[in-house]
Design a protein around this nucleic acid. Structure first.
Length: 461
RNA sequence: GGCGCGGUAGCCAAGUGGUAAGGCCGAGGUCUGCAAAACCUCUAUGCGCCGGUUCAAUUCCGGCCCGCGCCUCCA
């Protein structure tokens, strides 16, 4: 069956295109706007990437890995990356490499399928392609060079501008309009026009490239248009990102690409909603700004973070709280223990969990799918089979093995106490055993008795 | 002001024109010397408010209130 997904352009749930299984060249092309690599990604970023990862996994299950081409870019040149490099007295490449590596490590921990290097393009590796596109836009009359050497896209030259975000129905709030006008109003013919190429400024330092319009660097939007075209072709099947990219980023991409190529840019658009923390958008001033490391430092497991990020419908704002991590941790534990009860080696003939995938395929209803999983889990193994369960866990990207809590090794003094208690218990000296348990508790350790031995775990706060 | 998303139990969160999935927490119980785990049971006459349509609305329509996001380089 086809995967259905809300389309931001038509504002209805539509089926995604099925690639032709008999034509090796026909792949499902999928572009996901990636991260600007100047600092650690935060969990709001990861909500988007985890959601896209689930979508990617569903497509792979449906069509096979070879039929899905997923591109996610890295923005490695912009005001923020350049500013960071200047502040730290390092090269742009050094800064962006550091944060790219960090991003990859975090994605790994969250069990996102790895990117193929060539499908994770960096803006600075595609300068030529961007210049070429701008060149076409200049020649077609969709762009103009401003006195300072910057090149702007002429919004009035594209009749369909604003159809994605309904920008024509919007009224700019005075404050926003003033802010824009203050920035580069002198250079632009119209406040709506946006930069394709930014003339070199002193702050840019060595981070500029030659172009027919003088030295400078690409504007933000053009990189996605150019890299999408280079790797996926002029018309792609799906373009995704979080809601904040809907306008102006994606609107501008459509304008550039369609004016340049004369073809539809993307058949389908999908935008997930934001993650909120404590009911508000994350911000450092509110103190509700979390990176993955922040949560791991609080004792969360990466899988719990992933689960928590998936616990709301992707098209609804999700309010993330530390409590939701605890809930996720417990839920994953239940899934892990349930999995252990399933007989190994089953064939999947029953496909007990098949309808869960169907729920996921219906507009990526992750919470609905999780509910359906637990409904079955509560019925116990029964007819359930491991292959079917694992397929759903794969789709959700929940690696239950990775979710095993790390066994902290107890220090020698704790081990000694535990040994004494185990001996006391064996001797049926329960008074001593209880006293020793209290000592262990006071020292922050919990002793878990089994028939044949015991284990020690640090007490959770 | 415009555009968009939403308001469902203590918290989180699906869903449906026919009488409310699921997770967490909590309570009771079974079982273990204790503790933990596991297992069983229970937890919204109610789905922001007010009208309307209907045999029937949380679900459709209208109005209102409230929260959040975006409004030109934020995932």
């Amino acid at each position: 069956m086809a995967i259905k997904l809300f389309d931001s352009f038509s504002r209805e749930i539509r089926e995604l295109r099925n690639p032709d299984p008999n034509n090796p060249a026909d792949v499902f092309s999928f572009y996901n706007c990636g991260l600007t690599v100047y600092a650690s990604a935060h969990i709001g970023n990861f909500r988007t990437f985890v959601i896209n990862d689930v979508l990617r996994r569903l497509l792979i299950l449906e069509h096979g890995a070879g039929k899905v081409r997923y591109v996610r870019n890295l923005t490695d040149v912009d005001d923020k990356t350049i500013a960071r490099a200047r502040e730290e007295g390092r090269t742009l490449a050094e800064v962006t490499k550091e944060w790219t590596d960090k991003f990859h490590a975090d994605c790994d921990k969250l069990n996102c399928l790895p990117m193929e290097a060539k499908f994770e393009p960096r803006a600075t590796s595609y300068i030529k392609e961007q210049v070429d596109m701008i060149d076409v836009l200049m020649k077609k009359g969709n762009a103009y060079r401003a006195p300072d050497g910057s090149v702007y896209f002429k919004v009035s030259s594209f009749d369909h501008y604003g159809e994605l975000s309904r920008v024509k129905e919007r009224e700019l709030k005075l404050g926003s309009a003033l802010k824009t006008m203050a920035a580069d109003a002198d250079e632009k013919d119209d406040v709506s026009d946006f930069a394709l190429w930014k003339a070199h400024k002193d702050e840019d330092g060595v981070n500029s490239w030659d172009s027919p319009w003088g030295r400078g660097r690409p504007g933000w939007h053009i990189e996605c248009s150019a890299m999408s075209k280079a790797l996926l072709g002029t018309t792609i099947d799906l373009h995704t990102g979080a809601v904040d990219l809907l306008f102006p980023h994606h609107e501008n991409e459509i304008a550039q690409s369609e004016c340049c190529n004369g073809q539809q840019f993307s058949r389908h658009w999908y935008h997930n909603e934001h993650l909120l923390v404590d009911g508000k958008k994350m911000s450092k001033s509110l103190g509700n700004y979390y990176t993955l490391d922040d949560l791991l430092a609080k004792g969360a497991s990466p899988m719990a973070v992933r689960y928590a990020l998936l616990s709301g419908h992707p098209r609804k704002q999700l309010n993330f709280t530390l409590d939701s991590l605890h809930a996720a941790e417990s839920a994953i534990k239940t899934l892990r223990e349930y999995r252990a009860t399933l007989p190994a080696g089953t064939t999947g003939a029953h496909d007990t969990f098949g309808h869960v995938l169907a729920i996921l395929q219906d507009d990526l209803n992750v919470p609905g799918a999780l509910g359906a999983v637990f409904t079955l889990v509560n019925r116990k193994a029964g007819e359930a089979d491991l292959a079917s369960f694992d397929r759903v866990m794969f789709a959700l990207g929940l690696d239950l093995k990775a979710a095993e809590p790390a066994k902290a090794s107890a220090p020698a003094n704790i081990t000694a106490l535990a040994e004494k208690r185990w001996a006391a218990k064996a001797a049926k000296d329960f008074a001593s055993a209880d006293a020793l348990r209290k000592e262990l508790t006071a020292a922050g350790w919990s002793m878990l008795d089994r028939k044949d031995g015991y284990s020690l775990e640090p007490l959770k706060k």
